[in-house]
Each structure stands twice: as structure tokens, then as C-alpha cells.
Design a protein around this nucleic acid. Structure first.
Lengths: 146, 146
DNA sequence: GTCTGTAGTTCGTGGTAAGAACTAGGTATA
DNA sequence: TATACCTAGTTCTTACCACGAACTACAGAC
């Protein structure tokens, strides 16, 4: 078995994570994007602009994503007192519940991906990935507190 | 700075890789899926069935993806002599060229993500990710030979 | 020669993503 | 105050992605 390069490792593990994420989302009746939206909003409400920056989407793309989430009763658009143009996107009760379930299930699954590694290696992997993530200033799409 | 868990590390690095992949694809006038298709086909031609399994797509999803790639002149459907139902999807000359450029650029960029790590750590990371990937039998979407 | 399974396609539905043009509300400044 | 500019979000159009169900056509088995 040839050793995998870093590039291949990153790409393929990312493919793996995507697959898990997709499957998990599917199980909860969500699309990946909707799941991501919910996870981001778990931490706090966001305006459309910030949300776009965090998710790496154009604002026009976001409108539709939020629309569909609203239609499903997962989030709400709330007015911002100081600025009548702006909007805060907030989880509804139902949305929060679903977000937490989905989040938990997905974490468990992803954790499962690394379950073949002994704990020390898992820590090492976490540290190394942490450094990569930090070096490249990834927006916190998923979770800070774990 | 709180240490990141493995789960967060995997999820966020995967987000990072996705972003890079998306940007790279965009630059070459491809969608992520088309880029992935081209990369898979670089190794060898595939039938629709195998292709679906490799990419994790239903066959009905694949028809359209291949259709669009054909329309852009990137791939061809070739008949299989022994089985008149079956089809082999093959890169065209243009497709191969684009695939190689895209592949190279994307690899360079992904490599760049880990460029902050000293070589020894990069190797360690590669090894650990390799084990994760192996443990979870990911289909080879991107690259074996690197 | 019929029956059954397999390879792919078609069709309809819903979701994703972008850019351009737009509305409406803020802000600065002459 | 009036004007000009900027910002937050939406709308519209276009192309793409993904799925399941129903379908066509061929292959293999009996």
C-alpha cells in the first residue's frame, strides 16, 4: 500500500466527511446546505450579510436558502430595531431542536470516522488539523465548542 | 485558544478543502461535480454504473452530469462492444487537457493549505488521514497516484 | 422463447448558486 | 434641506445538481 500524500489525504477525508454529512442531513430531512445553516445559527442569530460571508455564499443565493428554511418553519427573519433594512435570521423552536439533533448525530458519525485510531493518534490528528484550519482562517461553519 | 476536537478539525478542514475545490473549479469554468467527474476519468474510462458508485450518485443524477459534460466537449460516450446496453464514458482530448490543468492547480492549492506545517508534521498528517481514509474505504474520487 | 435482471435514459420535483437589476433605508456633505 | 452615495436584502433569470419512478432496450437463464 502506497503512502498517501497530504493532498490526497485531505481531499479524500473531505470527501468522506461530505458523504457523512450528506447522509446525516438526509436522515433528518435536510439538505447539506440547510444543515449547515442550522448549525451556524445554533451559536447565534446572523444578518444575511454575515451569514453569506460565513457560508461563502452570495447574498442572492442566501435569500433562497433562508426562504426555504422559513417555509419549513426552521428559521425566522426578525427585524433589527436600529436598521430597518436589515434582518436577523433566527432559529425557531422547531429549528433549534432539529439543529441540535442533527448536530449531535453528525458529530457522532464524524467521530466514528476516526474511531479506528488510538486516542493518542486522534489527538495528534486533531492538533494537526487544528493548525491547518487556523493557518487558513476558516470561518466557523460548524462548531467551536465541542 | 481552545484545542479543536477531531470532529471539528475534520469538518472544518473539509469545509476548507471544499472551498478550495470550488474556487479552483470556478476558475476553470467547471462546477465541483464536473471537476470531480474529470478527475475520476483521468485514471480510466468508466461505465455509468461504476461512475455512480464512485461518485456516490444515483444513475439518474449521473445521466445529466455526463450530458452536460458531453455538451461541453469534455467527455464522450462510447459503446461497449460486448454489451450494447452499456456505455463507457471517456475523456475527450480537450477534456483530458482541462482535467490535467484543473487537477494540477487544485493539488497545488490544497497542498498550500498544509504549507504552514513543517514537513515532518505534514507527513504525520498524511499518515493519519491515510489511516482514516483506509478505515472507511473511501472510493477513490480524486487520486491514487500523487 | 419467455422471464427476469441489468444498463441507462426520461421526466417531474425541489433545491443550489450566481450575476444583474432593483427597492428601500441609511449616511455624508454641500 | 437636498443631493449623492452607500448598504442590506430581494427579485429575476439562467444553469446546474440530485433524486425517485417509470421506462426502453439489451443480456442471460431456464
Amino acid at each position: 500500500m502506497e503512502a498517501l500524500g497530504v493532498v490526497a489525504g485531505l481531499v479524500r477525508s473531505s470527501f468522506l466527511v461530505n458523504a457523512v454529512y450528506t447522509e446525516s442531513a438526509r436522515e433528518y430531512g435536510l439538505t447539506v446546505q440547510q444543515g449547515q445553516l442550522l448549525c451556524v445559527l445554533m451559536a447565534q442569530p446572523y444578518g444575511m450579510g454575515e451569514l453569506g460571508a460565513t457560508l461563502g455564499l452570495e447574498k442572492s443565493s442566501l435569500t433562497g436558502l433562508v426562504d426555504r428554511a422559513v417555509r419549513r418553519g426552521l428559521v425566522r427573519r426578525e427585524p433589527v430595531p436600529d436598521d430597518r433594512r436589515a434582518v436577523q435570521v433566527v432559529l425557531t423552536g422547531e429549528g433549534r431542536e432539529l439543529a441540535e439533533d442533527f448536530y449531535g448525530a453528525t458529530c457522532r458519525r464524524i467521530e466514528g470516522l476516526a474511531s479506528g485510531l488510538p486516542p493518542a493518534d486522534r489527538d495528534r490528528l486533531a492538533t494537526l488539523l487544528g493548525r491547518v484550519v487556523e493557518d487558513n482562517e476558516v470561518p466557523t461553519v460548524f462548531l467551536d465548542a465541542l
